[in-house]
Design a protein around this nucleic acid. Structure first.
Lengths: 189, 189
DNA sequence: GTCTATAATACGATAGAC
DNA sequence: GTCTATCGTATTATAGAC
């Protein structure tokens, strides 16, 4: 419950999502969060790896809560998914195309080299995909189709964030939102 | 046309796609490619950044050629796109989920911090998306819809590679291939 | 629990011999 | 053109005072 511990994690999330895992140094995290190096190793004895896992878990919960919130606020599942993606586009744009979630960065950098981080990322993705899949089942899709559709939604979401940041333009995210909507609507394209 | 220069670029592509940009050291590239440090700075006076740009441009051409090849071999555009994605899934699996393209890694790590790399990634994505869009127009889709669909295809492709590597399972790529196919077929879902 | 100083190592880049 | 030795500065991690 320590507030300094939370500050360190929060700063880590911000820096990793902007720069990536390996480009973000412990010294930079310490400088920006105002914590000394001793505190970091007191709260995270395993060092950078443990801190990164904490950052992934924190983001995992935050995003999952965000998804649930939109899904509860908007009754129609298809409209809810559309609104979530557009909300994401607005957030990415508002950050000046610097934000896009720390999980994807670590998933790419550490998927092949760090098993612990890979599993943490995998679990986060699983949680988010399940949130979409559950809502799709509520909307009348069968279990298998909901699983398949939620995979497309999550994948295109992650990919569109990368495209939008590279182009510094929200168009890819908006286009994905529109095409997903078309795919989900009864009657189809 | 130097063969050593090509070796350096090829090794850079392999290492960056496995570990990312910042995690890949110049010394590691040199050791694996068998080149000495002097050669690297002779061929790439601007150092790591110039080398990374060369790696992106090389991958850009290779993938574009791969897309064109599948699109030429398979007459039906929708079937061709499906086959390209499944081919990608096979390649990712064959690499032991270590490969997935060096561009995405750099796009994420450098989008906010290195303008030169960001632009190189943006151009690569543009080239690939245009290849898909052109084929969709051939298949009868209007220009605007082809643009929007190709954005979804490229985004979901990139995202599904990340998901598949995190899970060490090609399912996400296969599910994306199937859902894209459903979306494209006349009559729809 | 909190903090500083420092160790051990790797990084990218450069200088200069050949 | 090719190569090696080395510089200066990062990095993660630790030891030990308070």
């Amino acid at each position: 419950m320590s507030t300094k511990r939370e500050q360190i994690i929060e700063t880590t999330c911000q820096l990793i999502e902007m720069q990536g895992y390996h480009a973000t140094g412990l010294n930079q995290i310490l400088a920006q969060s105002g914590a000394p190096k001793g505190s970091l190793y007191y709260y995270f004895p395993d060092g950078k790896e443990e801190l990164a896992v904490a950052a992934i878990e924190r983001t995992s919960r935050d995003i999952e809560r965000n998804i649930q919130q939109v899904m509860t606020a908007v009754p129609d599942p298809i409209a809810a998914i559309n609104q979530f993606i557009l909300g994401l586009a607005a957030a990415v744009e508002a950050s000046g195309f610097r934000a896009g979630g720390p999980v994807t960065a670590m998933a790419l950098e550490a998927a092949s080299t760090n098993e612990r981080l890979r599993l943490a990322c995998r679990d986060a993705y699983r949680l988010w995909q399940d949130a979409f899949a559950a809502r799709l089942r509520d909307g009348g899709f069968g279990a298998e189709r909901a699983e398949s559709l939620s995979a497309l939604i999550l994948a295109s979401l992650e990919g569109a964030i990368i495209l939008s940041r590279s182009q510094q333009d929200v168009r890819p995210l908006r286009q994905v939102a529109a095409e997903i909507d078309t795919l989900l609507r009864p009657g189809g394209p």
